[in-house]
Simulated scan of single mutants.
Amino acid sequence: MTFQLRAKKGVQLIFHRGAKVKDDRADFRFSDESGLLGWISSDRATVIFQDLDDVKANEEAFVTLVRSWVNT
């Protein structure tokens, strides 16, 4: 995960599947029950928090999301 520090609004976190594009793009599935992820491409997604209130409101869902992502 990396931070996009130049985001125009809020804080943007980028979730990568690795340094290289994976060959399994068509087969890759990730269940995001939180709805926080926005897919940029088949191997990268973002989470954007507008402000600290947004972070606090989504803290539990975000922690669950990160744990799932790491275990994928």
Rank of each mutant, 00 (worst) to 15 (best):
M1N: 09
M1P: 12
T2W: 15
T2K: 12
F3M: 15
F3A: 14
Q4D: 15
Q4V: 13
Q4N: 14
L5P: 09
L5Q: 14
A7G: 07
G10A: 05
G10Y: 01
V11T: 09
V11Y: 01
V11P: 00
Q12L: 12
L13S: 03
L13P: 00
I14G: 01
I14P: 01
F15L: 07
R17H: 10
R17N: 10
G18K: 10
G18W: 14
A19D: 15
D23W: 13
D23C: 02
D23P: 10
D23H: 04
D24W: 07
D27W: 04
F28H: 05
F28M: 04
R29I: 08
F30P: 04
S31D: 12
S31A: 08
D32C: 10
E33W: 03
S34W: 01
G35W: 00
L36Y: 00
L37V: 07
L37N: 04
G38N: 03
G38S: 09
G38R: 05
W39H: 06
I40P: 02
I40G: 03
S41H: 07
S41D: 15
S42E: 08
S42D: 03
S42G: 01
S42A: 06
D43T: 05
D43K: 04
D43N: 15
R44F: 13
A45D: 02
A45Q: 02
A45T: 02
V47Y: 01
V47E: 01
V47W: 00
I48C: 07
I48Q: 10
D51C: 13
D51E: 14
D51R: 11
L52N: 11
D54L: 03
K56T: 08
K56V: 07
K56A: 14
K56I: 06
A57W: 01
A57Q: 10
N58T: 06
N58D: 11
N58W: 01
F62D: 00
F62A: 00
V63F: 00
T64Y: 04
T64F: 05
V66Y: 03
V66I: 12
R67I: 02
S68K: 13
S68C: 10
W69L: 14
W69S: 11
V70F: 11
V70C: 11
V70P: 02
N71W: 15
N71G: 09
T72F: 15
T72G: 12
